[in-house]
Simulated assay, not measured.
Amino acid sequence: MVRVHISNRKLVNEVHGAYIVVANHSSHLDAPLILGAMPSRLSRYLAAAAAADYFFDVWWRKGLTALFFNAFPVDRSANSRSNGFTGKLLKRGVPLLVFPEGTRSKDGTIAPFKAGAAALCIKAGIPCIPIALVGATEAMPRGRNWPVPGRPDVYVEFGRPLRAAEGESVDSFNDRIETVIRSMHAEQKAIADAARAERTGTNVHDHPTLGEADEHREGAA
């Protein structure tokens, strides 16, 4: 239903054991895009954190979510308390997929990251795999139950696995993860805009970010 472009997947080839995937979040396509883009060795047991108040509120959605995305519920209410379930999964070697914004973006922009994933990485001594997603908002915006027609382009970029430095605080590590994902997102957005301009005949020189995207693409090649 969509045309997927994957970048830098080889950066995660050396990851073994438990890890946490951290990505920006703007669409219900995000989890399947990540699961489909990752090497099968890493995605096989990847468990996705899903909002309990939406994905686990009725029996049929709960069953489908757990079946297809190996998902577990996360309480997003203001008075929620951790029951240690995520830590137990990590101790058993189960990798996690976390969207630290807490909810889907309405317009594709990235909201400030909550520090839960960074804290888990530090506590468990495991790496974070940063991923940037571009185009999912347009492909399946909020309010739709299915992607828009025409196989829209979506972009998945892998970042180099990150580990907290010795003595690094949770807030510092969280800021570093967010900075990396924002940077990758901006690069992929420029590439997506350049590709769209090429299809529609727009002059990229009229758009500075599009010209930068071409330079990034040539450097990557």
Results as ranks from 00 to 15, higher is better:
A213F: 06
R160P: 12
L46W: 07
A117I: 12
A66N: 10
P39F: 05
K10H: 14
D75L: 02
E198V: 09
F99M: 01
E218P: 00
V12L: 03
V170I: 15
Y155K: 01
H207E: 06
N174T: 08
L11G: 02
D171C: 05
A221W: 12
G150S: 02
R142S: 13
S7T: 05
R176V: 10
A165K: 12
L33F: 02
G87I: 06
T65D: 01
R3Y: 08
A194H: 00
V98G: 00
G125E: 14
A23K: 05
Y19M: 06
D171F: 11
I122V: 03
D153A: 15
S27R: 03
A136N: 13
M1I: 06
N203P: 06
L33H: 01
F72V: 12
I6D: 00
E138G: 02
K88H: 11
S26P: 09
T109K: 12
R61K: 15
A18Y: 04
R9F: 06
A118N: 05
M1F: 04
R41V: 03
P100F: 03
R61W: 08
P208Q: 05
L11Q: 10
K91W: 07
D107P: 09
D57K: 14
A192C: 08
A48Y: 04
G219K: 15
V2G: 00
A71T: 00
E166H: 14
E168C: 03
A165C: 08
P147F: 01
P208W: 08
S80F: 08
A48S: 15
A197Q: 04
E101A: 07
S183R: 14
G201W: 08
A71I: 03
S183M: 10
S77T: 15
H207W: 07
S77P: 08
V134D: 04
S26L: 02
F68C: 12
S183L: 12
A111M: 14
K123W: 09
A48T: 08
